[in-house]
């Protein structure tokens, strides 16, 4: 891997060296890079048009978990007196998760919006003839992954594929088996990015940068 290679993204210039410097206080750090540090790398190679997504600067993350509460607040609104309000931020309902380790390394994990969507590929639901969509599909407008809960079987195949091939973000609901924790981008204003006190996250344009060698990161 090139020492100077950037992870693509607007306003982000996180080199491999910075990353290792940032989290490189324990033996687990290298493994983590391979597991979670690929966010937009697949898009860079996909030939698809650029899209905007949530990127994490691991070196700036302090592990405070404010992003979890902000995500939950937006994506799990509360109904009070018949009116809808942002929720109270119970992290149980967050789509983003910060994983903490010893020595201190904190890894926010958010849906990578993979170009080749192993989760969607794994969905066994027969595609709808009109739209060609399985239960799990990519939203053409936002390019987020969405689940049609009415057609979803709760078979956990998507979560299995995500865990085996990517970051393991998708988590089956313990009771229904239906996928949870898929990033919604909060309607174009991701709350995790907005609320992070440390500027560790950005909502960035991702796509072909012309000189990416990120393929080395993808299994």
């Amino acid at each position: 891997m090139d020492e100077k290679e950037s992870v693509p993204g607007e306003g982000m210039n996180l080199t491999r060296r910075d990353f290792l410097k940032g989290v490189g206080i324990g033996g687990g750090a290298l493994v983590l890079f391979g597991q979670f540090g690929v966010h937009s790398a697949a898009w860079a190679l996909s030939g698809e048009p650029a899209l905007k997504m949530v990127l994490v600067d691991y070196a700036k993350c302090t592990g405070c978990r404010t992003c979890e509460t902000a995500c939950s607040s937006r994506n799990r609104p509360a109904s009070v007196g018949g009116k809808e309000f942002p929720g109270l931020g119970n992290p149980r309902y967050a789509n983003i998760r910060v994983h903490g380790f010893n020595p201190d390394v904190d890894v926010p994990v958010v849906c990578a919006m993979c170009a080749d969507t192993p989760c969607v590929q794994a969905c066994p639901v027969e595609p709808e003839p009109k739209t060609g969509r399985r239960a799990l599909y990519r939203d053409p407008a936002t390019r987020t992954i969405r689940n049609d809960v009415d057609r979803c079987l709760g078979c956990r195949s998507c979560a299995g594929a995500c865990a085996a091939k990517r970051t393991g973000t998708i988590t089956p609901n313990p009771e229904t088996g239906k996928p949870e924790r898929i990033c919604t981008l909060c309607g174009g204003d991701p709350q995790c990015v907005k609320r992070c006190p440390f500027g560790a996250m950005s909502y960035s344009r991702s796509g072909v940068t012309g000189n990416s060698t990120a393929s080395g990161l993808i299994k």
């Binding site: 940032g22 405070c64 978990r65 404010t66 201190d104 390394v105």
Partner: peptide, 9 residues
């Protein structure tokens, strides 16, 4: 090497 925060700090 790293600054660490407590919950929502």
């Amino acid at each position: 090497v790293k600054d660490i925060a407590c919950y929502c700090c």
